[in-house]
Amino acid sequence: MRKLKELVIERSLLLSALITIAVTVGIVLVLSIEAVNFFSEVSIIDFITDPEWTPLFSDKHFGILPLLSGTLLTSFIAIAFAVPVGLSISIYLSEYAPKSFRRTIKPLLELLAAVPTVVYGFFALMVVTPFLQSFIPGMSSFNSLSAGLVMGIMIIPYISSLSEDALHAVPNSLREAAYGMGSTRLQNSFRVMVPAASSGIIVSIILAISRAIGETMIVAIAAGQQPRLTFDPTVPVETITAYIVQVSLGDVQHDSLEYKTIFAAGITLFVFTFLLNTISYRIRKKFQEKYE
């Protein structure tokens, strides 16, 4: 009797764990089925090479490039801002700051990642853009620079926290060796600690990139809704995610081509983030073995 009960419990726990597999299968199936439907109507060559994305107009073009360039541009700005700042924070906290300071500041920094993204969108549109416009005349009220910078603020803690963990995990004996040789804290940080923690730091950066690519509300609010193949940070662009939001807000018929476009856009996004996540998972596994 007791054995049976244990078995039933174990099986239901297993079932719960298997739900996570079902979610992944669900995502892949939903995206691919709708995307296949989409590509039966639009050629995949056009999708990849057409420089225009105008599915909501009468002259329809289905080139993903403008959305992709919008996504990459905003993400690039965010990463270019967040990586140097986040990395500097992690090195400062791990190698310079007193322990008590580190303990108080880390949760405060993590608060930056807890702020809902719709709130950051408001910040970008209402505060950062007007501020930047006073330096850059002619800057549009929707632009990728302000959206990217604010996204950068949001992902700072992803980089600083995870990198700090990685630096902290480097055995103290290496720190002692470096100081014993007469290194300054800066030399210890960049010549010994950062190389020793490099895999953890790379993982944190990849996760931050993946987060930036998938971020939706900040760009939907502050970067605009004009798909445009450009790398000019002062003009409106549209990201993949912002396009999905734009379509979802409208009244689109379920079996229409417009409806299918959001799945085609979605699968593009999914492929990118999936690749990044897989790479970071691989590195993380290797890294764990190194210190065990």
């Binding site: 004996s173 290496l174 060796a177 100081y179 014993g180 040789m181 007469g182 300054t184 190389p195 020793a196």
Partner: peptide, 27 residues
Amino acid sequence: ELLRKQVGMVFQKPNPFPKSIFENVAY
């Protein structure tokens, strides 16, 4: 830093840097 160049130290557990042999000695 100058003091520690004059006074070298060897620790309980061997703690080479995760670099090449050459880089360790030249550090």
